[in-house]
Design a protein around this nucleic acid. Structure first.
Length: 791
DNA sequence: AGCACGCCGACT
DNA sequence: GTCGGCGTGCTC
């Protein structure tokens, strides 16, 4: 993204308020350590301020402290202990800090640093860029399961002190002991008696724990506590989770692939080759149409890197983390770790450790996999880089694609951003020469792009359901010819709204300012914002009129229409309602692949990445769903969705067709998507962005205030906006404050304010300090840099 | 974030 | 005269 590069170009992003100290304070080796002995460490704690604090590490802790380990330190007047990350060590305290105020580190938590110097640097960049504290960035990078050391525990073991051991061995001790006590000593002084628990010893010595307790009281034996590693504790719970991915032998075993690259793929790979073989940051945008075989290019690129003994990270949107994708990587590489979002803490911890120990060649995962603790990273791939799921919607609100570019820069490795429909940000970066663009304009085996027909719903007569005559006829034809059909409708539920024909009110969620969706299967109105359910009201909640009108079509209703129209062809609905169960996703796709299901209909989860050669028809039931949302990316999203789903057909020997139903056939997003013409879309869309200082021409930071008291939220944001306006440089444009497009979610009212500017520094300067006016109680402020959702 | 310090209104 | 309001600032 543009700013990633702007930062490269010079101005560095430092976290707010952090004192950047000259390297001199680290001191040279000839400098005497401070009088107290030990060393001084800078510690970042996860609090709302992000000043690194200096602590003194007493002698006995010095050996264990390194940057990247966590420490317990006293903080505040009462000196309560908090956990923080050691970020640097030195022999002298920083100048200008009263030595008397420096407190001691209480404890070192990790034997091994959780992150290395480069990842520390990455988190510091994130804190500065995304306007969060360094501690928050660090906590995003180290999974909770790793922090909690999930899967490990503290064990208590018995030992015999050296003098007692000698006394036992020369026989002088034995006389003073009972028979049972002697048995215990015998067990503990065996060569394998090193790490035994009380119960181990009692079992072997055939005695009760009382005997052991007695010996402990007499001081003949001692106890030590030791943390059991993942492996150790696994031995004791043999029936727990599966072994780490690295240890899994893939099924089937990786075969040396027959390298059958198309000339275009080879050309693409050739363009990457110098970067893959060299050392250095090199960002690429792989612009390849759907079906051009981008994945094969990634795989070959990764192979080269792995062959050099390096590791690769592959980011994919969560939704395409399908068994299909995973199998493809497993087939090709021996040591693959897959990081799903639904791993348990223990599994995540295990993966982390195994990656950190260099047991993994390829890490495949969603968003947070960008933080994988690889040892010798050689390549980062971001597939479907335009996907908005790479943006995290909680603090720190990072964009994994942009973090990937930054990480690649810090590690000095190439990064491949791939898409058939690149984000305008990445496209602009390529145009500006920041990324090298690699074009893959044609499909493999010379297959044509599918023909796309636009169906103007304004002229469509007698539409009772979601399918126009032409689309329905095309479906019949495709099915009669033995083909399969994909129908996209990006809206769940049966009816999308319930309206009173008398007063015109729409039935809303009780907790959100959003129309409730009728789910016929459950006979309920469900809020798609907060999932709250309510019974279908017998009469209008506003005017009590007896009859309510149910309107709008969702996937559930489309499914019914398809079942009625095509009773002899199996159809399957895929949306988050039908795909709730684990494995249902895989099962549905398998049934479609096998041909048992002929019609696959669903939300965007069927629009992307699927590769089924027998699909000869794709229908977009309502291309306009996202087109009129109050978001400057509405057109871009619409274009991407239509272009992506159109790409699901024509992937086999038979040509594919696409029908796109719309009320806006002349809108550029839909028109250009129908022609598979990304560049024309971009050419007409980019100028629209420039005027409004929208991305990629401007930087946007969105401030959202929310709370249950509408007046207080509004008042606060108004006041904050006034304060900022007074402080802002003239180049900063203010949009708002105003109510957010969705005014209320889960009983909280939301107001937002957008700040836009052609460059980042004025925004950063302005937003460095948001402490005054302070948010009133029960009002929270969210700062979203490079927002992806405006709702 | 917590938590203390600090400087102006209505109370014993 | 004091208890307590929450604005301001600090946390090594």
């Amino acid at each position: 993204m543009s700013v990633v590069n702007q930062d490269q170009d010079g101005e560095d992003a430092r976290p707010r308020g952090r004192t950047v100290r000259p390297p001199s304070w680290f001191g040279g080796e000839d400098e005497a350590p401070a009088a107290r002995g030990g060393m001084f460490v800078e510690v970042v704690v996860n609090r709302a301020f992000d000043q690194a604090l200096t602590y003194h590490a007493p002698r006995k802790l010095v050996a264990g402290i390194r940057p990247g380990v966590r420490v317990r330190v006293p903080l505040g007047k009462r000196g309560g202990l908090v956990t923080g990350y050691c970020v640097s060590i030195g022999l002298l305290p920083p100048e200008g800090l009263d030595p008397a105020r420096i407190k001691d580190v209480a404890e070192v938590l990790d034997a091994v640093p959780l992150i290395d110097a480069r990842m520390l640097e990455l988190t510091r960049w994130m804190a500065g860029y995304y306007l969060c504290s360094w501690g928050q960035a660090l906590d995003a990078v180290v999974p909770a399961g790793v922090r909690k050391q999930a899967g490990t525990r503290i064990g208590t073991f018995l030992t015999v002190p050296e003098d007692a051991r000698r006394a036992w061995l020369d026989g002088s001790l034995e006389k003073t002991l009972t028979a049972k006590q002697a048995a215990v000593l015998d067990v503990l002084c065996q060569p394998d008696g090193g790490m035994l628990t009380v119960s181990d010893v009692c079992r072997r010595a055939r005695c009760g724990s009382g005997v052991v307790d007695g010996l402990r009281k007499d001081g003949v034996i001692h106890t030590v506590k030791r943390r059991l590693s993942l492996e150790d504790s696994r031995k004791e719970e043999p029936d727990d989770a599966p072994p780490p991915a690295s240890a899994e032998s893939p099924t089937p075993p990786p075969t040396k692939p027959k390298l059958l690259l198309t000339p275009e793929q080879q050309k693409g790979l050739d363009a990457l080759a110098p970067a893959l073989q060299g050392d250095g940051f090199a960002p690429f945008l792989i612009f390849g149409v759907t079906g051009s075989g981008k994945t094969e290019v990634y795989l070959s690129a990764i192979e080269q890197v792995v062959a050099r003994g390096r590791e690769a990270i592959v980011l994919v949107p969560e939704i395409s983390l399908t068994p299909q994708t995973i199998r493809r990587f497993r087939r090709r590489f021996k040591k693959v770790a897959v990081l799903h979002s639904h791993l348990s803490d223990v599994e995540r911890h295990r993966h982390w450790r195994s990656i950190a120990q260099g047991e993994v060649d390829v890490v495949v995962g969603a968003r947070s996999a960008i933080f994988a603790p690889t040892r010798r990273l050689g390549l980062i791939v971001v597939d479907e880089e335009h996907e908005s799921t790479f943006k995290q919607e909680s603090v720190p609100r990072y964009h994994a694609r942009d973090v990937a570019v930054k990480r690649a820069q810090l590690e000095g490795v190439p990064v491949l951003l791939g898409s058939a429909t690149p984000s305008l940000e990445s496209w602009a970066n390529a145009e500006r020469g920041r990324y090298v663009k690699v074009d893959m304009p044609s499909r493999v085996e010379g297959r044509p792009m599918p023909a796309v027909e636009l169906i103007d719903l304004r002229h469509e007569k007698n539409m009772t359901g979601g399918l126009s005559d032409s689309l329905r006829n095309a479906m019949h034809q495709a099915l009669d010819d033995g083909g399969q059909v994909i129908l996209l409708l990006n809206r769940r539920g049966y009816n999308t709204f319930v309206i009173c024909p008398k007063c015109g009110d729409v039935v809303k969620c009780r907790h959100c300012d959003v129309a409730a969706t009728f789910h016929k299967g459950r006979r309920l109105l469900i809020c798609h914002m907060c999932d709250a359910e309510r019974a279908c009201p017998p009469a209008c909640p506003s005017c009590n009129a007896a009859v309510l009108h149910y309107g709008g079509i969702g996937t559930e209703r489309l499914e019914r229409e398809v079942l009625m129209e095509f009773p002899f062809h199996a159809a399957r609905r895929m949306d988050s309602d039908t795909m709730r169960r684990h494995g249902s996703h895989e099962e549905a796709l398998a049934a479609f692949k096998a041909g048992d299901v002929r019609i696959l209909l669903g939300t965007q989860m069927i629009a992307k990445g699927l590769d089924f050669p027998n699909v000869t028809l794709v229908g977009v039931v309502d291309a306009d769903v996202a087109l009129h949302l109050p978001d400057f990316r509405a057109a871009e999203r619409t274009f991407q969705l239509v272009a992506q789903v159109a790409g699901r057909t024509g992937r086999g020997d038979r040509p594919g067709r696409v029908f796109v139903q719309t009320y806006s056939p002349e809108s550029p997003a839909i028109l250009h998507a129908a022609r598979h013409d990304y560049e024309s879309f971009v050419t007409q869309e980019l100028p629209q962005r420039a005027g409004g200082l929208a991305s990629p021409y401007g930087r946007i930071v969105r401030l959202v205030a929310r709370g249950r008291d509408e007046g207080r939220v509004k008042g606060y944001l108004d006041e904050l906006a006034a304060t900022l306006r007074a402080r802002a440089e003239a180049s900063v444009r203010f949009l708002g404050p105003c109510p957010a497009p969705v005014l209320k979610i889960k009983e909280e009212f939301r107001f937002h304010l957008q700040l836009r500017c052609a460059t980042a520094p004025p925004l950063r300067a302005l937003l460095r300090d948001l402490s005054s006016p302070p948010a009133p109680p029960k009002v929270e402020l969210a700062v979203d840099v490079d927002p992806v959702s405006m709702l």
